[in-house]
Design a binder for these strands. Structure first.
Lengths: 144, 144
DNA sequence: CCTTGCTCCTATAGTGGCTAGAGGTTGTAC
DNA sequence: GTACAACCTCTAGCCACTATAGGAGCAAGG
């Protein structure tokens, strides 16, 4: 009504794109509130909720984890044990990913350094990709 | 015919799942060869090609990059300049990702350490997620 | 020869987390 | 009153697979 924020403003304020906000509503992360003219309307709390979501996404939490984190935030008198568990799991994952990417980095550096800048026949890049035995990167789990 | 390898064997040999092999054929990474009974049939070269693809995917190259790398491998007298460029671009990306994940790791560690194991009200995990200002992780680009 | 059961086939739909587009409505400023 | 921005819904597309349904081929044992 009088002090509702339109989706565009919320989008700017929370730095979450408009279609993404609509998507979040669709999957139930955001409560649907409309004006008489059928426009989505938000309050400052929604801006904060969206910021929370964006930040969590940036930190690599998936939607299900965020759903749990949001439900925890909505019930502040509960134990934070679950939030702690989620963060810890994420930390383990991140550590593993860093280790994997570091090995990958070494592999790519070896490829690039080994490249004789000649023809494909003698190119380390192609050769290492073709023959796994020549690869030093063995924890092939994350990469992407 | 007599020395063709069936998809299941190729799948085991190259450690690429059967539906994935069919998918690769569909998108043109693999030539389609069939027996009279309409079964896909492969040779040792296909096992090597699939291993190349798997390895490249594990190293984080996307399908388009792999397409280029494969076309280079198929023409070994060409210059390997392009392969070098692709690997270098990937290296830059990986370095950026490591930097980002390292910052993220610090952030998660701060969260977990700061958690008083009490109630959500006072939980650092939730608080840091809610208030971006309290976050030390600012290169929010990769994360996942 | 026949059945059992394994491997294979196609085609379609689903995954996650959005993003893009078409085509229509509402609200606002001049 | 009219131009135009901002909004609406609905559908389809992105990537790289993965899953499922429903059917056909093929090798070994009886």
């Amino acid at each position: 009504m009088h002090h509702g924020i339109a989706i565009g403003k919320v989008s700017d304020a929370a730095r979450v794109k408009i279609p993404t906000i609509r998507y979040y509503e669709q999957i139930g992360l955001l409560a649907p509130n409309r004006t008489e003219g059928n426009r989505r309307t938000y309050g400052q709390d929604d801006v904060e909720r969206l910021t929370f979501i964006r930040h969590s996404r940036e930190l690599g939490f998936n939607i299900d984890e965020i759903r749990t984190l949001l439900s925890l935030q909505d019930a502040p008198h509960q134990s934070c044990h679950e939030a702690d568990t989620i963060a810890k799991a994420r930390l383990v994952e991140v550590k593993r990913k860093i280790a994997s990417l570091t090995a990958l980095k070494a592999e790519l550096e070896r490829m690039v350094e080994g490249c004789s800048h000649g023809r494909v026949e003698t190119c380390q890049v192609i050769e290492i990709l073709a023959d796994h035995g020549k690869c030093v990167f063995h924890d092939h789990t994350v990469a992407a």
